[in-house]
């Protein structure tokens, strides 16, 4: 029998996994987003509004929130096409802070005081979503569209010149990522049954990025490893309690120095595929 304590941790892993996947999807096109907590916040508030105020069932509310956030992601994705690298990172950072600031002033849902009244969801429910989306990403990774994403990341000009519509591909990735982050937000709200704007700050976006970079930035499963690492490692290394962030910061730098692609990478998977077919 699992203790409630562990159940809480595993729920955190599932939610972080979804947030990390949302960063991973944008990273697949070669762009780093430092504002995905913003999409998560949109998802959290919208889902909570739908379930608490409108009485919509949670699953439907999550789907609606994902669609709405995805649409916002697409709308933001178009101007974002003009920006690259650091500039896009700064713009997404600004977007995240704008969303946080918006909810801080959104008195209809509590403003700085936060919003509550959500019904607690089970661990199984959270992981059904997390596993389904991880599986979806894993399937997409073997599809034509993912190859196109990688081509766009590597060389946009060459990609366009073999007929790839780079605009649609990048904007689509942004929208998909925004939808996934919104689901993370909706689940977060119904796990903690209380949300406030501070839950969706820059630090949250950074957690997503950390999970992806540590776990492996070239395969979706890396987000799972990263999320487990970020949540579980401090629990098992109690002496780390006060220093866990310093340790993660150090790990991040060390990882960039010795293994930039993160713990898992594509060649590792290729190796296993080779073994299987041999």
């Amino acid at each position: 029998m699992m203790s409630t304590y562990y159940a809480g941790l595993l729920a955190d892993v599932g939610i972080l996994l979804l947030g990390a996947l949302s960063v991973y999807i944008i990273l697949a096109t070669g762009q780093l987003s430092l504002g995905n907590a913003g999409f998560m916040g949109i998802g959290a508030y919208l889902t909570s509004y739908l379930t608490v105020t409108m009485g919509v069932p949670l699953t439907l509310a999550l789907v609606i929130a994902a669609a709405a956030s995805g649409a916002i992601g697409v709308i933001i994705g178009f101007p974002a096409l003009r920006l690259r690298g650091i500039y896009l990172a700064m713009a997404t950072l600004g977007f995240g802070e704008m969303v946080r600031s918006f909810f801080l002033n959104f008195d209809a849902m509590g403003g700085a005081g936060g919003f509550h009244g959500m019904r607690h969801v089970s661990l199984g429910y959270i992981w059904t979503w997390a596993a389904a989306i991880l599986l979806l990403v894993a399937i997409l990774e073997h599809s034509q569209i993912w190859l196109e994403l990688r081509a766009v990341r590597d060389d946009e000009t060459a990609a366009a010149l073999v007929g790839l519509d780079t605009t649609t591909i990048k904007v689509g990735a942004f929208g998909f990522a925004a939808a996934v982050a919104a689901i993370a937000g909706g689940l977060f709200a119904h796990h903690h049954v209380y949300i406030e704007p501070g839950n969706f700050s820059f630090e949250r976006s950074i957690d997503f990025v950390l999970a992806v970079i540590l776990g492996g930035s070239t395969v979706g499963a890396g987000a799972l490893v990263g999320a487990l690492l970020l949540v579980m490692l401090p629990e098992h290394l109690r002496f780390l309690a006060d220093w866990r962030f310093a340790v993660f910061g150090g790990l991040l730098i060390a990882m960039l120095l010795v293994r930039r692609q993160g713990i898992l990478d594509r060649s590792l998977f290729r190796f296993f595929e080779f073994r299987r077919s041999a």
Binding site: R150, A151, R153, D154, D155, T157, A158, T218
Partner: peptide, 8 residues
């Protein structure tokens, strides 16, 4: 100058 996709 040949332009192939990085890790493909």
């Amino acid at each position: 100058n040949i332009r192939l996709f990085g890790d493909m």
